[in-house]
Simulated assay, not measured.
Amino acid sequence: MEPVYSPVIAFARGVFALQGLRFTIVGDENVPTSGGAVMVINHIGYMDFTYAGLAALKSGRLVRFMAKDSVFRHPVSGPLMRGMHHIPVDRTAGATSYRAAVDALRAGEIVGVFPEATISRSFELKAFKSGAARMARDARVPIIPVVIWGSQRVWTKGHPKRLGRTNIPISIAVGEPIAVPLGSDPEQVTVEYKAVMQHLLDVLRSTYEPLTGADLKFLPAAMGGTAPTLAEATRLDDAEFAERQRKADARRADERTDRDD
């Protein structure tokens, strides 16, 4: 029982019930009841971290998620994130965030990571970054692969949020722990656990209710849906990143001009 995290979980589950969300969780016995682990999760919706944490409850565990530091600066979410001992990620000082995550793992925590870094507009697995594998290797803890399907129908990038009573089913699958011995190649480990996650995702999709009509926008193009292909989604992401970078550069230039004046 934690003074902040436990009430937040209870509140969230109440909200999920009001929304009529129907969760199916398989493999949650694979979450270790003690010791550190890196939980790696696919990313298809804004609420994924709130759903993925449910997979650890059967084992009596709480997941400390890595999240962008701006969330910790918000007057409402900031105190909650700090109270739940989540880990801020400052992209300008990545080494600090990495050390904090490894320290948490060595202290016996489960650290939640989205190796795709951003939401997949295609709802397929994007390229994975190798940071999760490096953390697991350096902390000498296993990787726990987790996949989610259905969360994109609640709230995802490029589509209006649907936070009312929708009765949307959400499926979660947890794979067996993957050992990451000291000396492992993080790139190879990443390839291996991504393949496990792809298999788990394929199984979830095969048993999920068929998506039709307007919901085809939440289905990958390769499955007959109208979501962007992985290549198209990558181009959209690259364009979005370039625009953010342009605005950031312009803002810095304006700040320099103001100082010079």
Rank of each mutant, 00 (worst) to 15 (best):
M1G: 14
M1S: 15
E2D: 07
V4S: 00
S6N: 09
I9A: 11
I9H: 06
A10R: 14
F11D: 07
R13C: 07
G14R: 03
G14Y: 09
G14P: 03
F16I: 09
L18I: 15
L18N: 07
L21R: 09
L21Q: 11
R22F: 11
F23D: 03
N30H: 12
V31K: 04
P32M: 06
H43Y: 11
Y46A: 12
D48A: 02
F49C: 04
F49V: 08
T50Q: 09
Y51W: 11
L57I: 14
L57G: 03
S59G: 08
R61P: 01
L62F: 12
V63T: 07
F65N: 00
S70A: 04
H74R: 07
H74C: 04
G78Y: 04
M81G: 04
G83E: 00
M84F: 04
H85F: 06
I87M: 04
P88T: 06
P88V: 06
T92V: 10
A93S: 13
T96E: 15
R99W: 12
A100E: 07
D103T: 08
A104N: 05
R106K: 12
A107W: 08
G108W: 12
E109M: 04
V111E: 04
F114D: 00
E116M: 01
S120G: 10
R121D: 08
R121N: 06
S122T: 13
F128K: 01
K129S: 14
S130H: 11
A132S: 12
R134K: 12
M135H: 01
R137Q: 10
V141R: 02
V141G: 01
I143E: 02
I144G: 03
V146Q: 09
V147W: 00
I148T: 08
G150Y: 06
Q152E: 13
Q152I: 10
W155F: 14
T156Q: 02
T156K: 00
T156L: 03
K157W: 13
K157H: 12
G158V: 08
H159K: 14
H159I: 05
P160L: 08
K161R: 13
K161G: 14
K161C: 12
R162Y: 09
R165M: 08
N167M: 11
I172Y: 03
I172R: 01
E176T: 05
I178F: 07
A179C: 08
P181A: 03
L182K: 15
G183R: 05
P186I: 13
Q188G: 00
V189Q: 00
T190N: 05
T190C: 08
A195F: 14
L201Q: 10
D202T: 10
D202M: 05
R205T: 13
T212Y: 04
G213L: 06
L216I: 02
K217T: 09
A221L: 05
A222Q: 11
P228N: 09
T229S: 01
T229A: 00
L230W: 01
L236V: 06
D238F: 14
D238A: 14
D238H: 09
A239W: 08
E240V: 06
F241H: 12
A242T: 05
R244Y: 02
Q245N: 11
K247M: 07
R252M: 13
A253L: 03
R256S: 08
R256N: 07
T257K: 15
D258K: 15
D258W: 13
D260V: 15
D261R: 15
